[in-house]
Design a protein around this nucleic acid. Structure first.
Lengths: 124, 124
DNA sequence: TCAATATCTCAATGAATGTTGAAACAGTGG
DNA sequence: CCACTGTTTCAACATTCATTGAGATATTGA
């Protein structure tokens, strides 16, 4: 997903808050199945109304998504959005300078070890 | 440069503001030689005091750096800091999920074309 | 339908952030 | 040393953001 500047601003703003950054981490760990709103709030030690506020914020910013599952609302990481943000940072913001891209490339190479790159085809 | 969570929060906060995001872009384009504070302010259409405020903010966040050069203060992008932020996003925040890393890897591959990867040795 | 559970919405409050203009400070050239 | 240029600092103000508690909404099981 290609991010434009306003979306990138929203995404950075969303990640610039401790509770929300932790929520993203928790949801990334949880993977595509995601977690119920209440569970996320508990994991980051936020009241239910505070959790709801921050989760909506993250969803508006395109970093997470939600689906209803009986009484619960399940939130999960939006990997496309997160990838888009990394891409924005590397490409638009940093103009593809090697000083930024090369370290990123080596992180990418690491993450593509068999341990992490399960079913996904790996280009590295 | 390895970023910890508080530094990453500061960096995201710094980039979540339009004027500052544009300043970073301008300074990245300018390269290591950098630009005088006044020139950056002019480029992003900010008053001198507003420019000074945002430049300090970016410097505190580790995204840019400054040096005095006669009467001017020259700001330049801190590529280590920017790379650290990309790395944080990929590694700590996204746990190295392939959904995020693979797109990043292809951006990195692009940026390592001869056009951009001048004197820097390229691992791609 | 009722009670219980899970979540969201709303309004109020205080804290943090951004903007402005005036004034201070530092370095340079005459 | 003085006037000038480039930049920062400061205080005041408006705006935005985060937290809270109370209440509204939706879903389920009895």
């Amino acid at each position: 997903m290609k991010l434009e500047e306003p979306q990138a601003l929203n995404a950075f703003g969303a990640l610039s808050q401790e509770t929300r950054l932790r929520m993203v981490r928790v949801l990334v760990q949880a993977g595509p199945e995601g977690m119920a709103a209440g569970a996320v709030g508990e994991a980051v030690d936020a009241s239910s109304s505070s959790a709801s506020f921050h989760l909506s914020h993250l969803e508006r910013a395109g970093l997470i998504q939600s689906r209803r599952e009986s009484r619960s609302i399940i939130y999960s990481a939006n990997f496309e959005g997160l990838a888009g943000l990394v891409e924005f940072l590397m490409r638009d913001c940093c103009s593809g300078h090697p000083e930024v891209c090369l370290p990123a490339a080596s992180v990418a190479a690491e993450c593509c070890t068999p341990a992490n790159a399960k079913e996904t085809a790996c280009a590295c």
